[in-house]
Design a protein around this nucleic acid. Structure first.
Lengths: 110, 110
DNA sequence: ATCAACCATCGTAATATTGCAATATAATAA
DNA sequence: TTATTATATTGCAATATTACGATGGTTGAT
């Protein structure tokens, strides 16, 4: 039904899914990569950088902002975005705990 | 329009988004966690373990299988699933390259 | 005050995802 | 053969996501 039954899963499972959803679209990956590349706040050039319409970019930025992964600060007529390092680390550690599991048992399996 | 413009993004960006999508639902996170927990093939107990209907689980398994993250081997009347360690490592390295970027510039930013 | 630049929001259309009942398929057991 | 068990597939309904045109708000310049 397009609706996820979050209530039957643990908080950790839902958290991982929520963070993963942030990266589950190439536009958001591109936005974050551009932020890392420029390595400082960026004001404005995202629409020209990514090839999508301005409302679309704005919507993706909103999702990343809602998750807390980026911050937006008004700077005159434009808005400067940057990664929130604290939240990024929090996300990374949640993802790492999931990704860095022991694979040895599956080397000889099946 | 619900359709992603993959053609305007790099192969790497699309790859990260595709892998992230695998974890973007708590049921798939739960399935993978259960596989790691049992630490061997599992045949059958996924439907009782996760609280979703059998066709729903089957569909999530199919997505993980299509991505190559898990394998399914027929074992009599049931099917045994396990993580594909090679693909998992490949995914992990792609995600790590994205997640492990230098945050120092953002510590003092904005 | 007027204008241009930049960004957010609204509304809407197209497509994707999630979930399950019903059904199909395949292997084994009796 | 028939029944049973385990899983896959189909079809459908509900909801979510993606994309963008149109519009609105805010800031800074003239």
């Amino acid at each position: 039904m397009g609706i996820t039954k979050t209530e039957i899963f643990s908080q950790q499972q839902n958290q991982i899914a929520t963070f993963a959803k942030a990266f589950a679209h190439p536009a958001r990956v591109a936005i974050l990569q551009h932020l890392f590349k420029i390595n400082t706040c960026i004001c404005g050039d995202l629409v020209t950088e990514i090839g999508l319409a301005q409302p679309t970019i704005s919507q993706h930025l909103k999702e990343l902002k809602n998750l807390g992964l980026i911050q937006g600060n008004v700077e005159g007529t434009s808005v400067c975005y940057c990664i929130d390092p604290k939240k990024w680390k929090e996300m990374k550690s949640a993802m790492a705990g999931f990704l860095d599991q022991d694979l040895s048992a599956f080397e000889e399996c099946c």
